[in-house]
């Protein structure tokens, strides 16, 4: 299997008011193509910080994040924007759709930034919304959709540009049970069908039970790294 992400001695230290806070400490991990990984741990264990570091949203204070042979920590900000746009999909806890755009436009948004053709965007957006079961909501604005539907649009948006991997920060935290299961079904299916690498940070047992790999962080360090045959 191909390694998609590799971290070496990854470290993030924040300057706290009393003493420096070591949010991520000496993390060495590799993520393989097609893996469905859940990063778990108590609040403040460094899950979101770790996701931000491997997603290029934040710069590490030490170590490396190597994606496709590139140490993204060494990239300039403008290069990082392009890198994220090309290689990484994001799903956030609070859906975070663009309120003024329709579901189809939200899904097309990243492809628009990638300067894909209008026809290709249109086709892929419809296809992705169909895959997440929202083919009848193409022209609905976020405020016309339920929380679960908005999160499914967010997943379609993250996957539409065919990124190397998708980072999801507690994507089920705001969903009811039915919507959460629905979303997980969709993501599991896409993970298998499109061989997309998924990395979730989560507290949610329902996510953990679907993941093929569960990494536990405690105080910014990897305390457990378990593989499951699912």
């Amino acid at each position: 299997m191909k390694t998609v992400i590799k971290t070496s001695n990854l470290e993030k230290v924040y300057n706290g008011s009393v003493a420096p806070v070591r949010a991520v400490n000496n993390v060495n991990l590799e993520f393989q193509e097609g893996e469905f990984t859940a990063i778990v741990g108590p609040s403040g264990s460094g899950k979101t910080t770790f996701l931000n570091l491997i997603g290029g949203l934040d710069k590490p204070t030490g170590g490396q994040v190597i994606i496709d042979g590139t140490d993204i920590a060494s990239l300039k900000e403008s290069q990082l924007f392009d890198f994220r746009l090309k290689h990484i999909g994001f799903v956030f806890q609070s859906y975070n759709l663009i309120p003024v755009l329709t579901a189809k436009e939200n899904v097309s948004f990243i492809m628009l930034l990638q300067k894909q053709s209008k026809d290709a965007m249109e086709k892929r957006a419809k296809e992705m919304l169909e895959q997440v079961g929202l083919s009848d909501k193409l022209n609905s604005r976020p405020n016309q959709l339920s929380g679960g539907q908005q999160q499914r649009v967010a997943v379609a948006r993250a996957l539409a540009s065919k990124p190397k991997f998708v980072l999801a920060d507690e994507p089920t935290a705001n969903l009811d049970t039915e919507s959460a299961f629905n979303l997980l079904d969709i993501m599991s299916r896409l993970n298998k069908e499109e061989n997309i690498t998924l990395i979730f940070s989560t507290h949610d047992q329902r996510v953990i039970e679907r993941a093929s790999r569960v990494i536990t962080l405690v105080d910014g360090e990897v305390s457990k790294d378990e593989m499951f045959d699912r």
Partner: peptide, 16 residues
């Protein structure tokens, strides 16, 4: 601010 943070996160450039 939050919306701006999201837009930048998903790939919109600061200049855009």
């Amino acid at each position: 601010l939050r919306e701006f943070g999201i837009l930048l996160s998903i790939g919109l450039k600061r200049a855009q």
